[in-house]
Design a protein around this nucleic acid. Structure first.
Lengths: 247, 247
DNA sequence: ACCTAAGAATAGTCCGACAAATATAGGGCC
DNA sequence: GGCCCTATATTTGTCGGACTATTCTTAGGT
């Protein structure tokens, strides 16, 4: 599982060298390979081992520090920060988590967050969405229905739907969570698909959310989204507990 | 208002030069001085204007890029990203916002987020808190009661209480929001205090939340926290709408 | 036993050069 | 005349090395 993952691994962060170094170190940290408190190899040796210049290595460290994963001080060196300081909702950090088979606990916690945020967001979206957003939600669900979650296009449409709901809240900080929730949706969906197709058809739940938002019924939208997320959680949990099909 | 602000301005990020440059640019961006889409001065000229080496300037840019504020590409240069990409919940980004008088809309959005997250967190905390966390909440409230929100110690205790509630959810991603919500609490409280003391005594609301969490009553904790946040919102709104006392 | 000063290790900063990427403009071809 | 392709200029990206500032540690002095 430490093999190159093409889902997003070659994507945004790893075009430049400093980005790929940051990703490599980030994955090593969030996967527990470097524990909080551990001191990293000093810049000179580390950059030598990684075959990059010290400048590049330093820029990678700056990225990690900006996301709360490490802290640097002269003489002491660069050490992994306490987990409480990690920006777990940062899209990159989240992506790094999912590059190395996250723990079941972590998945559960993410679902818990979705369970808090998404129903409330759906309620706000029902009150504030405009026609353009509504149309985008509808289009996303249509694509999702045709393509199913087995294809990347279908999964992208799923994320697009959830993103647009967040966007329709007209709440900037809340919308920031869409990249986090989107990441959670993306990876957990892949987990589900990895096992047998015992997963239920997700479309009826999605349409109910959409209809409520379209009708402007906040409470109904909240409840529909609650059902959607909790059912998704059940499916994910089932596919984790179940003996793997193709390991 | 562009004067050095000592509340946290000289604190964590600005000891090293690259940190202070990142902060300076970050503030310029979130305050609208550089609009999304704008291209920043090229590295050579910019570092010259700022009187720092190009390496330092580049590390500052890496920090901003890690937080989603800018994107760099050869030939095109470094440009301010669309607002939707900004990691608005990052503690540093939030701090930069509050260094330059955030808009009323932004405050309202943050309260809306608190209104979604904190009641749910209180409910979870009621079910999961351990004795140590309970004791820390109690101690924080005692300090808050003695010091009042007029002193920094009192405000720190207030933040500590809210932090501990988040922590008691035993949910890592959720706890990540504590630094964001803590920042919101910190600055909005200062706003309230800036005006006349028409603010209500916040202690009864806080104690009700505490009692519910101590008793393990999830629903009661949720409702108490809902009241607490919505009353705080009212106070903040009132002190913004009211003619300023000392401008 | 405690305080103080010297030393060592590390990140931080600076500089200058070259490489890679990419948008743009210009020339050649159809 | 219009389109494609190539050359070029601009900007970030990468490199290597030197020197500085910070701070932990250790040895020495009181």
């Amino acid at each position: 599982m430490s093999k190159a993952r093409e889902a997003d691994g070659g994507g945004a962060a790893s075009k430049r060298i400093h980005g790929s170094i940051a990703r490599k170190l980030g994955v090593a940290i969030v996967s527990g390979q470097h524990q909080p408190g551990d001191v990293l190899t000093n810049e000179i040796d580390a950059s030598e081992q990684l075959q990059v210049s010290r400048s590049v290595y330093r820029e990678a460290i700056r990225i990690l520090a900006a996301k709360g994963l490490v802290e640097s001080r002269p003489k002491t060196g660069t050490r992994v920060s306490a987990r409480a300081r990690w920006q777990l909702l940062d899209p990159d950090v989240l992506a790094w988590f999912f590059e190395s088979e996250p723990s079941e606990d972590f998945l559960r916690e993410l679902y818990e967050l979705r369970m808090i945020v998404e129903p409330a967001a759906a309620a706000l979206a029902a009150q504030r969405r405009d026609e353009v957003q509504l149309e985008r939600m509808r289009a996303a669900l249509v694509i999702m229905q045709h393509e199913t979650l087995a294809s990347e296009a279908g999964r992208a449409a799923d994320r697009d739907f959830h993103d647009t709901v967040l966007e329709a809240t007209s709440n900037g900080p809340l919308f920031t969570l869409s990249s986090s929730i989107g990441a959670a949706v993306r990876w957990t969906t892949i987990f589900k698909q990895r096992h047998s197709e015992l997963a239920r058809d997700p479309m009826p739940d999605h349409w109910k959310v959409f209809d409520a938002i379209a009708a402007g019924r906040a409470d109904q939208a909240r409840e529909a989204m609650e059902r959607l997320v909790s059912l998704a959680l059940e499916d994910t949990r089932a596919s984790i507990d179940a003996p793997a099909d193709q390991v």
